[in-house]
Design a binder for these strands. Structure first.
Lengths: 228, 228
DNA sequence: GAGCTTACTCGTCATCTGACGAATAAGGAT
DNA sequence: ATCCTTATTCGTCAGATGACGAGTAAGCTC
């Protein structure tokens, strides 16, 4: 016997790399903490050495996981559908957030994004400024357009309005996937309620935030200054 | 020369232990990932060996950090103040969430709680079922009492109502401390707007969720079953 | 079926990590 | 001053970790 190596299917470069990335993303999102190449390899069903055939080092692998697993699954159609004024905005929001929650706010995605926030390659700022801000603007503008109300000129104020709903939905995913909460109320119902609440509170919230549009910009508490 | 040891102030057992816990909590919340006892000791200004004089192993240290830094800072008075019906509930909510955000939703606390969610000793479930659920019930009941409306009998439904506001505020802290977002709108104003939105949407949301009180309990999507 | 590319594994190395035995000295008690 | 408790450090060890040189064979091409 001896010299018995583990038989392994031989895949093409791209197939194997994609497979490693997928298994590694799964492993990373579930286990987290010390990412050990040996365990990662075991989870991917390959030898540890093979990782270094595809990635120069561990950090490069993790970078690729983030790039493919975080920005990837966002659907561009969402922007189109949200801006389709042939339907009432309430209906568009319901359709969007159900899909967003089911498609994007998965266990893997949610955990990876937050996990990355503890590392040097924090993906959240990029994701937020690159995609979410535009999403929030779209949503808030669509509601305002249907109501015939005028929005504050400052983008940060518009974003905060959108965050009220988007933050509530996102936090629902965090509770479920990170805090491991059992959400016993059907999720669609919760999301609908969050949207109802957002829409009903739209004008009151707007007038509260409008008081600032005329006011000054500095009043922040504690450590936050700078930028807009 | 030689045998020159680093001069170090000699503290009492409890003083030193408290100091280590504090520095370690700071280190853990800022750095995260691989918690290395040597770096931790360096951050605390002590030798690595001394950690093992106070804690049997690394995991015991981390457990103590979580216990002291997460459950500790919650103020019991908050329950009393929130239930003080001599003031309008809107005012109570504003006072509470400003204090909650400033006192509890700090950088250290927020990051530690979420960090712990990736480890075996996930603190969030305990914190939520031990404290937050009671908090949510108080808040929702106070609003309902002032409005003279009746709440659904099921606790999970009441919790979801409370989470709409609590989740939005919590997510604000996550954005700030984890995603490193610059919140350029003054935080008090954002919180006020979130409260306005919540209060304005209270009844619509309630009637949306009430439709379930009579309905069935199973309709969940995907992986969630079990418990209530 | 011979040859060749390259996907894949074995074995190994320097370094780091958690843990701890043993020595040292600060500072209170007498 | 002397003693004694114990807070504190030094030095070290076994095991784990990231990285990679060198080899092996799967499966295409001709």
């Amino acid at each position: 016997m001896q010299k018995r190596r583990t038989p392994r299917k031989r895949l093409t470069h791209d197939e194997r790399k994609a497979l490693i990335l997928d298994r590694a993303a799964e492993y990373l999102s579930e286990n987290g903490f010390p990412v050990r190449t040996r365990r990662l390899a075991a989870a991917a069903g390959i030898s540890q050495r093979l990782i270094y055939h595809f990635f120069p080092n561990k950090s490069a692998l993790i970078d690729e996981i983030y790039d493919s697993a975080i920005a990837g699954p966002f659907k561009a159609i969402w922007f189109v559908e949200l801006a389709d004024r042939s339907k009432p905005v309430a209906e568009r929001l319901r359709a969007f957030y159900r899909d967003y929650y089911a498609t994007l706010l998965t266990r893997r995605w949610t955990r990876l994004l937050i996990y990355s926030s503890f590392s040097a390659q924090n993906m959240a700022p990029r994701y937020i400024s690159g995609i979410i801000h535009r999403l929030l603007e779209t949503i808030v503008e669509e509601v305002a357009a249907e109501r015939g109300v005028k929005l504050p000129a400052e983008k940060p104020v518009v974003h905060e309005i959108g965050w009220i709903l988007h933050g509530a939905v996102s936090h629902l995913a965090i509770r479920r996937h990170l805090f491991r909460a059992n959400i016993s109320v059907p999720v669609e119902l919760v999301i609908d309620a969050q949207i109802d609440s957002f829409l009903a509170g739209f004008e009151p919230m707007l007038s509260r935030l409008a008081q600032r549009s005329a006011g000054e910009s500095r009043r922040s508490n504690g450590a936050q200054r700078r930028r807009a």
